[in-house]
């Protein structure tokens, strides 16, 4: 067991929490929260892997910065989609959104 193992286990835990939340949540907002958990785990594992092995330090930190930027873009878009779905269907239950029109 090295220090890297501990950090990777922590990020694995984040992935597992996010996956479980994504499946059990009933609304789009709850699913957005779960996806953020998973993205955070991805960033943590990238930084841990690059910082505690011989890989380039700045590569890992910049990759995580890009993950954060993508997460921000994704959250913005999902907020707009949630607004549209709320206006169109009156609720944001994932089981109710059944038409593409």
């Amino acid at each position: 067991m090295t220090a890297l193992t501990f950090f990777l286990l922590a990020s694995l835990l984040l992935l597992a929490f996010g996956l479980a939340g994504l499946i059990t949540r009933r609304t789009l907002v709850g699913m957005l929260i779960s996806v953020e958990l998973m993205l955070n785990g991805a960033g943590l594992s990238i930084v841990a892997a690059c910082k505690s092995t011989e890989a380039s330090d700045s590569l890992g930190q910049l990759a995580t910065l890009f993950v954060m930027g993508l997460a921000a873009a994704e959250a913005t878009l999902v907020l707009a989609m949630i607004l549209v779905v709320q206006r169109r269907f009156g609720k944001v239950l994932s089981s109710e959104i059944t038409t593409l029109r």
């Binding site: 067991m1 090295t2 890297l4 990777l8 505690s52 092995t53 011989e54």
Partner: peptide, 14 residues
């Protein structure tokens, strides 16, 4: 992770 992560050469983060 537990089995194979230990084989990686790990260094202290600087």
């Amino acid at each position: 992770i537990i089995l194979h992560g230990s084989k990686l050469k790990s260094k202290v983060p600087v």
